[in-house]
């Protein structure tokens, strides 16, 4: 007799736990306000990216098309993956008559970047920073190799002192 009572208790208890579980899912289906889906491309305008978001490395230019990169290669050394390549040349400075290292291209391989922020930390002149763009998909791999300094851009005066 005891066995039968235990058996019934077991069945009832088991069914109770199942109903408890169904209550949880039942709550959510009856409360459509709880839906958390964000429909991404549609909500692009309202997307709020945080200030510190690490999307890609960018080099801000001011209105005179000048940047703050001296070509010191600190970022290139700090980068663990060889993401940054700085191509520079010695160009004759006509005032002093001396040849001086000048940055030609700040090449940034987005495909190799792990967004570790070490280059930004290393930069002594705050010439580069982390951009908020995150839509990096392109059709060709070569498009992921970017030149950060804009064509014709110059070093901002007073940065080097």
């Amino acid at each position: 007799m005891k066995a039968i009572i235990n058996y019934i208790k077991e069945v009832v208890g088991g069914v109770k736990t199942l109903i408890n579980g169904m209550k949880v899912t039942g709550y959510y289906i009856s409360h459509p306000k709880e839906i958390i889906t964000q429909q991404y491309p549609e909500n692009r305008d309202t997307l709020n990216m945080v200030d510190r978001f690490r999307g890609e490395v960018i080099m801000p230019h001011d209105e005179n098309n000048e940047h703050a990169c001296t070509g010191c290669q600190a970022c290139e050394i700090a980068c663990p993956n060889g993401t940054i390549e700085i191509i520079q040349d010695r160009i004759l400075n006509e005032e002093t008559g001396k040849k001086k290292k000048t940055i030609l291209k700040h090449v940034y391989h987005l495909s190799m970047c792990t967004m570790c922020n070490l280059c930004i930390e290393a930069c002594p002149t705050d010439a580069i920073e982390m951009g908020k763009g995150f839509e990096h998909a392109v059709f060709d791999r070569s498009q992921l190799t970017k030149v950060l300094n804009k064509p014709g851009s110059k070093l901002r005066a007073g940065v080097e002192e």
């Binding site: 945080v50 510190r52 978001f53």
Partner: peptide, 15 residues
């Protein structure tokens, strides 16, 4: 996490 260090998964927050 994203607000603190800019990344959601691979944080690299410690130095």
């Amino acid at each position: 996490f994203e607000e603190t260090c800019g990344a959601r998964l691979t944080m690299n927050y410690n130095v």
